[in-house]
């Protein structure tokens, strides 16, 4: 059984090393002997129904985000939502996260309508939230924390239909106010921790792979991997984050 990863708009939504997340999913499948395939889902392309196990979308600049928003509404959005309700996993970062909510309201110009996977909305903030992030999360592995880097001005607020991915102990998170970071709805994760979230947070990566496998077969358990280097990188990033804030 092959795990199929659908990379949404790889040429438009890939700022700050987002592809590190794809590499991590691919390698962690390969190291376990699980066949894996990456399908690029570009503008205009329709989703192959029932075939993609993990969707990924990164962040983009404003112009790209507008182009992608149109394609999501007109082409892929309804199918994406349906797949996630049927148990597909997803990781969406920054701009991708915002478009998976209800809407993004900029200071000026048109509101961008999202596809409502997450019960969440985003408004433009007047301060850019930049820096290292440490946040406690059930997906945080042995330390119970996830670590990453955020760089966003949008402020996202969650409703009752989803839960936060984590609670921030260093950094700003969703909106700098309520301490939440990211969102989870079923197998879908949205987050402001851009770029390479998964390499240093193998627990999050394995959550997605597990969801993907569970779609096909019940009771699948992932073989453990030697994560010594991953955890060292995680821990030293946590120490660094506390120092640089």
């Amino acid at each position: 059984m092959t795990v199929r990863i659908g990379w949404l708009y790889p040429d438009l939504m890939n700022i700050y090393g987002d592809r590190g997340n794809i590499m991590t999913l691919v390698q962690r499948c390969k190291w376990r002997g699980i066949p894996v395939q990456v399908d690029e889902l570009a503008l205009g392309a329709r989703l192959p129904e029932g075939l993609i196990d993990i969707f990924f979308m990164g962040g983009g600049q404003d112009r790209e985000q507008k182009i992608v928003c149109r394609d999501l509404l007109e082409v892929k959005g309804p199918a994406l939502k349906r797949e996630i309700d049927r148990g597909a996993a997803a990781l969406v970062v920054c701009g991708g996260y915002q478009l998976f909510g209800k809407y993004y309201r900029p200071f000026e110009g048109e509101e961008l309508t999202g596809i409502e996977v997450f019960d969440a909305y985003t408004v433009a903030g007047n301060k850019r939230c930049i820096g290292n992030v440490v946040a406690t999360s059930a997906l945080g592995g042995p330390s119970g924390t996830i670590v990453g880097f955020e760089n966003h001005s949008g402020k996202t607020y969650l409703g009752d239909g989803c839960t936060p991915l984590a609670m921030v102990s260093v950094g700003f998170g969703n909106n700098s106010e309520d301490g939440t970071e990211g969102a989870i709805y079923r197998g879908a994760i949205g987050t402001y921790l851009h770029g390479s979230l998964l390499p240093k947070n193998p627990g999050v990566a394995d959550f997605l792979i597990e969801k993907a496998l569970a779609r096909r077969e019940e009771g699948v358990r992932l073989d453990p991997l030697d994560d010594a280097l991953e955890l060292k990188a995680h821990d030293s990033a946590v120490v660094r984050a506390r120092k640089t804030h």
């Binding site: 700050y16 090393g17 987002d18 592809r19 590190g20 590499m23 930049i130 820096g131 290292n132 880097f149 760089n151 851009h194 770029g195 390479s196 390499p199 660094r240 640089t244």
Partner: peptide, 15 residues
């Protein structure tokens, strides 16, 4: 390094 002059964010190495 991730000092200010290097850029605090090291995600770029994945690019």
């Amino acid at each position: 390094n991730d000092n200010i002059a290097d850029g605090r964010d090291v995600s770029w190495i994945w690019d």
